[in-house]
């Protein structure tokens, strides 16, 4: 199977620190992958590099999307290829309606599309369509609205950064449902997490520490390793001192 994303020898230095260290990994189309690891391991940085965010494009190595090197591509160009990202803390947009936000990247610009997407994340269109995506919404509501917007894009790769952060059990259940919907429509999902609950949603996982991939494999294997070795570990992101 050809990978949808191929990361090859990826290294990124920021402010004199090595954040990603010679990483190589592949994501398979239509699968749910997870990158799990402690805070500061470089998981979100990896997603930022794949998305091509400002400040994260000066990497060494290559990131290929469907075999195509994305080094010269900006964020919107990568989005046009089908790559997108759900942030750990979604942005607030004063005055921008949920309707406009949900449809902003959609090939179809009609109310029915927006309403369907909101329903998929468990939010009532009647209640939410005309509201603003601002601080009158909770973090969980904004996460679900962001996911509704991603659903209308019909993306090929969705990176979800800490999807369980700052939300309640019901919101997380809806987010997982939306993730399964994306997968059912053929999208690849990359979960960025340090939570076992989120990790369990994945088919395959990568264990990351100190900017490196330490292990990769089936989720159960990585979960076992993470639970037994990483969670009790006090090496503070210095694997060479903590040992494997």
């Amino acid at each position: 199977m050809d990978s949808i994303i191929a990361v090859r020898d990826l290294t990124l230095n920021l402010g004199g620190d090595r954040i990603l260290d010679d990483m190589t990994l592949d994501l398979w189309p239509g699968h749910v992958h997870a990158v799990v690891g402690p805070n500061g391991a470089g998981k979100s940085t990896l997603a930022s590099c794949i998305m091509g965010l400002p400040g994260y494009r000066g990497y060494e190595g290559r990131i290929l999307f469907e075999g195509r090197d994305m080094a010269d591509m900006g964020v919107d160009e990568r989005a046009h290829l089908g790559i997108t990202m759900a942030w750990q803390e979604p942005a607030r947009f004063e005055g921008l309606s949920v309707r406009k936000f949900v449809l902003c990247g959609s090939p179809r610009d009609d109310e029915e599309t927006a309403a369907e997407a909101l329903e998929l994340v468990g939010l009532s269109p009647d209640t939410y369509l005309e509201r603003a995506v601002d601080d009158t919404l909770s973090g969980g509501e904004r996460k679900r609205i962001e996911l509704a917007s991603i659903l209308t894009m019909q993306p090929k790769l969705v990176m979800m950064d800490e999807p369980d952060s700052g939300i309640d059990v019901e919101a997380l259940r809806r987010i997982f449902e939306a993730m399964r919907e994306l997968r059912a429509k053929g999208a690849t999902v990359l979960l960025i997490t340090h939570s076992v609950t989120v990790l369990e949603q994945a088919d395959h996982a990568f264990l990351m520490c100190c900017g490196r991939i330490l292990e990769k494999g089936e989720t159960e294997e990585i979960k076992k390793f993470f639970g037994e070795k990483c969670l009790p570990c006090d090496h503070q992101n210095r694997p060479e001192e903590g040992g494997r």
């Binding site: 998305m51 965010l53 400002p54 900006g74 964020v75 919107d76 990568r78 989005a79 046009h80 790559i83 997108t84 990202m85 942030w87 979604p90 942005a91 607030r92 947009f93 004063e94 005055g95 921008l96 309606s97 406009k100 902003c104 990247g105 603003a132 601002d134 962001e146 917007s149 991603i150 894009m153």
Partner: peptide, 29 residues
């Protein structure tokens, strides 16, 4: 962050900026 979010949804920088300003200037703000 607003800009990057909208660009990650496929909007160009100019279009994303316009949409953010449209929100700021909307009556609901």
């Amino acid at each position: 962050k607003q800009l990057q979010t909208l660009m990650a949804h496929g909007l160009s920088e100019d279009r994303a900026t316009d949409l953010i300003i449209e929100g700021l200037l909307s009556p609901s703000y």
